[in-house]
Design a protein around this nucleic acid. Sequence first.
DNA 1: GGATTTCGTCGAAGCGCTTCGCCAACGGCG
DNA 2: CGCCGTTGGCGAAGCGCTTCGACGAAATCC
Lengths: 342, 342
Amino acid sequence: MATIADVARLAGVAPSTVSYVLSGRRSISDATRLRVESAIAELNYRPHAGARALASARSNTIGLQAPFREGVDVNVIMQFVAGVTSGAHDHDYDVLLVTQGDGSHLARVSASSMIDALVVMDVEDFDARLPALRNLTMPTVLIGLPMETAGLTCIDLDFYQVGLITARHLAERGHRSIALLGSPVEVISRGTSYAIRIDDGFATGATHAATQHVIIPTGASVTGAHAAVDTLVDKHPDVTGIVVHNEVALPHVISRLREHGLAVPDDMSLVAVCPNNVVAAMPLPLTSVEIPAQRIGEMAVEMVVRMIGTDPQTRDNEVRLLAPRLTERGSTRHLEPLGSES
Amino acid sequence: MATIADVARLAGVAPSTVSYVLSGRRSISDATRLRVESAIAELNYRPHAGARALASARSNTIGLQAPFREGVDVNVIMQFVAGVTSGAHDHDYDVLLVTQGDGSHLARVSASSMIDALVVMDVEDFDARLPALRNLTMPTVLIGLPMETAGLTCIDLDFYQVGLITARHLAERGHRSIALLGSPVEVISRGTSYAIRIDDGFATGATHAATQHVIIPTGASVTGAHAAVDTLVDKHPDVTGIVVHNEVALPHVISRLREHGLAVPDDMSLVAVCPNNVVAAMPLPLTSVEIPAQRIGEMAVEMVVRMIGTDPQTRDNEVRLLAPRLTERGSTRHLEPLGSES
DNA sequence: GGATTTCGTCGAAGCGCTTCGCCAACGGCG
DNA sequence: CGCCGTTGGCGAAGCGCTTCGACGAAATCC
């Protein structure tokens, strides 16, 4: 492997000059820059990452903490990961995967200066990693919200608003009894905030619109979806509109509804909450609120990269909630005023 | 951050001694080792990864190349990733994610000595990354097989055998016409070898058993599954047993069969090929061949770690194909001899 | 036209670690 | 008792890079 000294020799300059060409931290005349660049190309030179990290106290790597938990949508996780990696790439960072949730791995990785910053995925309300994160001076961004966000920087879709606008959307179309088919119980009981926030928003939205509502946790499986629909039909036959926030269950919810003789949207209005590629794969167009997972991953990187190099003291932590947008695709119908139904 | 010099000072030894305590490369008396260890603990010392990489020419990091492609099962991908990370952790390695498929990222990462070895996922027959990989002296293991494996080390489930034993299983139970509902066309036309290998095995197995067979590429979506089942029912009504190698389509295949009035296993025998957690989530027990994705990920790491430190010349490349095992769960029935059906 | 600034480049120090060679002390052996 | 092989530890070199201060030369100013 060629070193910076080799390049310098070939270009007839000092190693430091090569370094400055590479980093752009000092002005270099066009003539020498060109010579250095061609030497670099000729030798196919790549700076040694370790040496660079040692000398500059920067590794140009960000850590991605991604616990692989039960019940979470792998699809969404993958999109976060894809967003983070592509965002990192855009900013010339690499991504180190940190999967062990116990924090010891995290501590090792951060203390050994392998990473300059950290992105944490799938945060719970009382996340076990929180204490470790709080006394980490390293720039950190959480994807998702814990219960107590003081001193933390977070980004997520505003699921409260998701609940609110989906409830309102249905209410505005005349639905007087609506349901939310949400996350599996294990996700909720773990205290995963997005599940709780969408519930709250949904309840509030429904209440404001003087609409009946019910929330049905839904397992991320065929049986889970079927059970939820069965509950809906049996216990809440007056429900005319549902919101489904469960990517895995979604198709099975639709087919189970059909088995019960309920067509979307004629007999049941439906709003999906999931990534766009999931609704695109559905057999019928669905009105939906997108979960822009990839975008969120990219934004998380952007935030964390901006934090690098700023003084931890002056850093002001923000909680960034993306406003959801509902896209109509005709899977929710207008209910006629009572008595005028055909 | 404490350095090795701080530890040495506190323990009253030379820095090199601390290093030897850490690496175990030279014998150290119990007395000093204890002193050093307690100094390490007291200062909460972690070696600087960059410095270590620089001095030892080892980064203790393996690269994981994971292209995020259309049509592949994210679930399986995630299990590979989980296996690789946990395997890496077991061997005291970290994992660097390399997602950009174009190879430039790979080149940069490997040339800058960020990684000691590489695991490549989702390999295609004529994979674009192959040329880059071949003239990489770094230990590399592919998960999946390309067309030409000379000079490469690969690991995968033996999908040819999967096709063979599933076909035979159905044939042995008296099925005279069987079908394989496999990967989406885009996966096949990309030349993804597992899809092709299972097809070959299935065809051969069926032919040997003098059984009719048909292979139906199946889209990884509700509509894809429905289309495949519709094709099956319309064009191949004599088929009595199917193998489904498509995790996403699987539940929809089953429900579509039911919509056609075909129950599993009474009217249609079914063998699934997918990870165990997927069959577990199905509404009925399914006879299946497991895809041990996590295990494969771990084994890939094991192989690649063993390769590190061995001379590239003497390294003999192996292609390791895991023998599949079929687990009966009662979703395939014995067909009665002709005329004796109830 | 001298003083001052700016520009482009160099040299050297040092980041924190590993590893090699060296050496002192210590037994075991003939 | 002298020799030699082991053992346990030390010191220093050096891995490849960044960065700071220095320094001519050219440009700018009054």
